[in-house]
Design a protein around this nucleic acid. Structure first.
Lengths: 138, 138
DNA sequence: GCTTAAATGAAACAATGTTTCAAATGAAAT
DNA sequence: ATTTCATTTGAAACATTGTTTCATTTAAGC
């Protein structure tokens, strides 16, 4: 779907920085860090606007954060499947060598049974270490 | 166990900053952030030494990190049960309002079946949101 | 084309984490 | 107890990530 259509569909104002951010994620086809998004966006990137866009797009359900490590957050487009949001239901592997994030679709998160009164706004199952390729190189 | 005995038992040099760090965690009896540890340690705290101690104590299996959120890491003593390390096998809830970290001992992590060649050095299942008390206050 | 609320971007700041290197210290041997 | 030496410390300087404020610009509806 076109970036501007995604914004319209979620009733969010179409602005140049937001469109560019979504397009960066679409082009990559994988979760990106701020640094990677900055490179993709080039001139259109501004730090403050970036963080505000992330907030807006997260709240409206267009993207989500994955806290790969402290000081390494990745941002990903939510997959739309038959009209409803596809929340992250699988684990991720973060390689501390190459800084790539791998989706571990075979490791699912069963429904999280929280104590009464606790509200889940965001969650991650992250495994950190070194990936196959980096282990071979070391 | 006394802090200096823990260091000795793990074949790590007994130094004033390390002892103070372990004692801070023992006194609190719960995972602490750098900021909280700094307050506990007072004069004995130094930023660079802190991060190096965290590395040393993590590698020797005395403590572990819990990445509660980006920009919010908590440090906790490993529990020694019948002589062997007790790795984190349960989820945590991080409240973005009060910044407390709750152990969700009823949400266990089954063994993580990684693809061949991937090495798990550290992992977290973290749920972020607002806790019961903070939800009542809002 | 206007109008106006919303969004942007610049500056300045705050917190977290790292690198370098000279000085201090723990632990072991004398 | 003193000496020795590798390890550890701590100060300075830096890098990155994230936030607050406020004047300017822009999207979208009329």
């Amino acid at each position: 779907m076109k970036a501007s259509d995604i914004l319209e569909h979620h009733l969010v104002k179409k602005t140049t920085p937001r469109v560019a951010l979504i397009q960066a994620l679409q082009t990559a086809g994988r979760p990106l860090s701020e640094h990677e998004i900055k490179e993709q966006m080039g001139e259109l990137y501004d730090r403050v606007t970036f963080y505000r866009s992330i907030q807006t797009l997260s709240r409206s359900g267009i993207i989500h954060r994955i806290v790969a490590d402290n000081v390494m957050v990745k941002y990903a487009l939510n997959q739309c499947e038959n009209g409803h949001q596809h929340q992250v239901d699988h684990a991720h592997f973060y390689c501390r060598e190459c800084h790539n994030l791998f989706c571990l679709k075979n490791i699912k998160l069963q429904s999280l049974n929280l104590p009464a009164g606790f509200v889940d706004e965001e969650h991650d199952l992250v495994i950190r270490g070194t990936c196959e390729q980096c282990n071979d190189l070391i």
